[in-house]
Amino acid sequence: MQASDVYSKYPGNDPSVLIPILQDVQEVYGYVPEEELHNIAKHTRLPVSRVFGVATFYNQFRLTPLGKNVIRVCRGTACHVKGSLDILTTLETELGIKAGGTTRDGQFTIETVACMGACSIAPVISINDEFFGGLTVKEVQKLIASRRAEKSE
């Protein structure tokens, strides 16, 4: 699907289609680019401030592209007790970004999630669709190093 298909799918001048359009545009790009926020505003005849307001209200919408490696850090209770805050700060220091951010080279994104439902192997992180449990700070550093190496290969 392309962005132009999204707009032909929904009637113009109809503010009620705002959220479905945002979802479909995100489907196309993996995020909602700024230019598309303006296009959505034109299509729905809403002020762009409202489109931006809605897009920033819901956590499901991203306004920046995701990195190649999306790292999700579980910050649930069990993981917290098992030291997930250290895991998170290690990742943030290693990659030079804060949770929610993406590295400049577009390789890594860090996100936090409430619970992954894998408390028995806490602390847990996932990188894209792969899960890693029982982690230590050292192991996290190794993981990042190996992903970096993959990039340079």
Binding site: E34, L37, L46, P47, S49, R50, F52, G53, T56, F57
Partner: peptide, 19 residues
Amino acid sequence: VGAIDFVRRGFHSTVAPAM
């Protein structure tokens, strides 16, 4: 005109122009 609107949510809510 719609120059400003609520942006983000919860503690991070502000009233701001788009972007």
